[in-house]
Computed example of a mutant assay.
Amino acid sequence: MTIVFFGTSEFAVESLIAIYKSEHQVLCVVTQPDSRRDRGHKVHFTPIKEKALEFGMTIYQTDNINSAQSLEYLNSLKADIFVVVSYGALLSNEVLSISRYKPINVHPSLLPKYRGAAPIQRTLMNGDNITGVTIMEMIEKLDAGDIISQRVLEINSYWNYGALSTKLSIEGGKLLLEALKLIEAGVDKRVPQDDTLQTYAKKIKNEEKYLNLSHEASDIINTIRGLTPKITPLLVLNNQYLGIVEAEVASLNVSEDFKNSVIGEVLKIDKKSGILVKCAIGAIWIKKIKPEGKKTMDFKDFLNGKKIHVGNILKSKEEN
């Protein structure tokens, strides 16, 4: 089939690679405009643009995919199908009506659970142990189209956002090719979503990166897993932000072993286990740290260069 591929983020790359290696033809890759960031305002391409350039594909970028100009261009391609993977903008009914077959989307959750912008992050932050990928027909309503196929994935308790996103991206690419084969043969079976079972994965807000030790230890670990490495969760030590990149729940009985301690207190420093910090319920071992303005390091390296002692208090932004 001839395909127009819509994608922007790193998650979409494996799907583009899968199509590139298949018998299908990519007529054009549609991605978000380049961005300028860093001190020198250097131009940054989207991950999908970088991969499309590597493959020698035609690229289309626009601030408004639903504009008259975009509609005219997309119509001119006469594509069999539009494939949308983490594109970053809603498509109008006019756009969704252009291709020969109805557009399809690769979504990193088991719909109707976790519709929305941050399904992978919310899956981990909520402590789920099962997730998956869905291929669905696209309609104007967000992530609400009929389901074509799904694949379940068990979540390893040590996976963070980066690891789970990679796994789902690879599975999504595989499932996408299977779905395209079914669609082309006319044997795909589409199942409407049960809207009564829908949940919404809202976009991660900036303030969510500030860890709150007034929560249960397992919830704090889930937040760290859900944000890293894309976003670095933060605590405050001696009026400086400290990135917490990796940690695990401590198996100690904190309420018995450290009766007089307070939330955020450094209870113990162990050269093998890490830095033990008290939470409202339980405690966490901090394993990897990103000091303000520096690279991520093992807690042992941090201890060599910083003075942190038993009895120091780590705080959230709100407490500082």
Rank of each mutant, 00 (worst) to 15 (best):
D219I: 14
T228I: 07
D194Q: 11
S214G: 13
E184L: 13
I183R: 08
K205Y: 07
E216Y: 12
D194I: 06
K189E: 10
Q193E: 00
R190K: 11
A201V: 08
E207F: 06
G186W: 05
K189F: 06
P229K: 09
A179L: 08
R190Q: 10
V187K: 13
L213N: 03
D219H: 05
N212T: 09
K205T: 14
I204F: 12
N212Q: 15
Q198W: 10
R225I: 01
I204G: 08
I204L: 11
Y210I: 02
K230M: 14
I220F: 11
R225P: 00
K205P: 05
Q193L: 02
T223F: 00
Y210T: 03
T232A: 05
D219N: 15
L197P: 05
T196P: 07
L182M: 15
T228Q: 10
R225N: 06
A201W: 04
H215S: 11
P192H: 06
G186Y: 09
I220Q: 06
I231T: 13
N212I: 08
I221Q: 11
G186A: 12
L227K: 13
N206D: 07
I183Q: 00
S214C: 13
N212G: 08
L211C: 15
R225M: 04
V191W: 04
P192F: 06
E207V: 08
Y210D: 02
I224Y: 00
N206Q: 13
E216S: 04
K202S: 04
K189R: 13
S214Q: 10
D188P: 06
I224V: 10
T199A: 04
E207A: 03
K202A: 10
Q198K: 12
L227N: 08
G186M: 09
A201N: 01
L180H: 11
T199D: 08
Y200C: 10
Q198C: 15
P229H: 10
Y210Q: 02
D219G: 14
I224K: 00
I231N: 05
K189Q: 12
V187W: 05
S218R: 15
R190M: 02
K189N: 05
Y210R: 02
I231K: 01
A185Q: 15
N222F: 01
Q198L: 00
E184N: 03
N212K: 05
T223G: 04
T232R: 03
I221V: 15
D188S: 04
P229M: 14
V187F: 02
G226Y: 02
R225V: 02
I204W: 04
E184A: 15
K230V: 03
T232P: 00
R225T: 07
I221C: 05
T196G: 14
V191Q: 15
I221M: 05
E178P: 12
Q193H: 01
T223K: 12
D188K: 04
E184Y: 13
A201C: 12
K202T: 04
T232C: 06
A179V: 01
L180V: 14
I183S: 00
I220D: 08
V191K: 12
Q198E: 10
I220W: 02
A179Y: 00
E216F: 14
S218Q: 14
A217E: 07
H215G: 07
T199K: 06
N206H: 12
Y210P: 06
I221K: 05
I221A: 00
K189M: 14
H215A: 09
S214E: 14
L197V: 09
R190P: 01
A185C: 12
T199Q: 03
D195I: 13
A185F: 09
K189C: 14
S214K: 14
D194V: 09
T196I: 06
A185E: 09
